[in-house]
Amino acid sequence: MSDAIKGNILTPAGWIHGELTFDERIAAIIGSSVDPALNEEVYILPGFIDLHVHGGGGKDVMEGGDAVHTIAAIHAKHGTTSMLATTMTAPPEDIDLALRGIGKAATARGKGEARVLGAHLEGPYINSGKLGAQPPYARSATLADVEKLEELAPLRVITVAPEIDGHQALVKELSDAGMRVQVGHTLGTYEDGLAALEQGARSFTHLFNAMPGLHHREPGMVGAALAHATYAELIPDLLHVHPGAIRTALRCIPNLYCVTDSTSATGMPDGEYMLGRHKVMKCMGGVRLPDGTLAGSTLTMDQALRNLVGLGLDLADASARVSTYAADYLGLQERGRLAPGAFADFVVLDRDLKLKAVYIEGELL
């Protein structure tokens, strides 16, 4: 027997005031068009989709084993209904360990956990001169290297520095194989970025961070993204990117989507935590290396939504940027939207945009 919930429901066709019936998937949405500002009922939005998650609840993806299950449960409590567990640049044995854990978690969703869709391989195929908070184990790649890792876990997204010798060809090979390639942790030029897009790269990893910035005579990798990208990920914790730069990206990149880049410190008190092989310190809402470099975040997707609305986005637009566009980027038509046949992944928010309930594939957390 199907369950049902009532309120202001955000559908692909707009807001509907009515009832959503569901079991594992959405059975029906019945109601009439509404301006949700005209009543005081709850908002029902698509569940959040986070394509860049390193940790949470004191656990780091690079630990392997069952760490991903703890991470998926912590983020589910903040409205994330599906996610990509994200690796760090590390020695091969560390990456293998992490991917085995991700591969196991991706085969079955535990009770109270976000769906782990697979892995985002953020390292090691990056530029050693633009590590950011990545440990110093960057190396170049071949298709054979990636195919070996693909045996351990589904690689849904791979971050690549395209200026490294051989990597432009790799971008094309990976793209032709159906993987989503992102440009990131790069010292590449505007021309390198444009070439990568022409070879099949689809997005940019944490836009503005760990890449050359925009200059009017040297547009850099940021310039390539702003001028040509349809998709890019961005960390809207208001520490990684200035609100003015966020607004610039929103005007330029149609399907800009948000990620947390969250670490093991997410949901935990201030103190010392691990990010891959790095020790990092959480203090005053930020996570940093000992030299002060930002090292991921403690952002959650419900706060990302509130931050976007605080910057002036309407709720429907903000919702798309924490859910629908990420699903579209991965080619997932059954997630990131409230429509009959889609998975019953949704969040219920009060009028202050605080979470009241989270449903993942029909399960109420």
Rank of each mutant, 00 (worst) to 15 (best):
T293F: 01
T86C: 04
R139A: 10
F346E: 08
G7L: 04
G341W: 06
G271R: 07
I235Q: 01
L299Q: 02
G285I: 07
K148S: 13
E113A: 05
E191K: 12
I253N: 06
N127V: 07
S128L: 11
L311G: 06
G213H: 06
L365V: 01
L38K: 15
P46L: 12
D60G: 08
K172H: 14
I30S: 14
G132A: 11
P290V: 03
G184N: 11
K354L: 14
P92T: 00
T300S: 06
G276C: 10
G57T: 09
L20K: 00
G341N: 07
A73Q: 14
G276T: 09
L355K: 11
I71T: 13
A138T: 06
P92C: 00
T159K: 01
E272C: 08
H75Q: 11
G110K: 08
A67V: 09
V42M: 12
D176E: 15
L275N: 07
L353H: 15
G312M: 02
A98Q: 00
M83Y: 03
T86D: 05
H17F: 13
G336T: 00
A224R: 01
D94Y: 06
T142S: 15
V53E: 08
L364S: 13
E151S: 06
M284H: 14
G65C: 10
R288H: 14
L332E: 03
V160S: 01
D176A: 14
T266Q: 11
E63G: 09
Y190D: 08
H240N: 01
P12I: 05
P135V: 02
H75E: 11
D165P: 01
L174I: 09
L305I: 04
E19N: 01
T260G: 11
H228R: 06
D328Q: 15
L311S: 02
A210D: 09
K77R: 15
Y231W: 06
V181T: 08
V322R: 04
H215C: 03
D50C: 12
D302T: 03
Y273S: 10
L131M: 13
G244N: 12
A304D: 05
M88I: 04
A138W: 12
E40C: 11
V157P: 00
P254E: 15
Q199S: 13
D165K: 09
G55W: 10
G31H: 07
T298C: 14
T81F: 07
A108K: 13
T107M: 10
G223P: 00
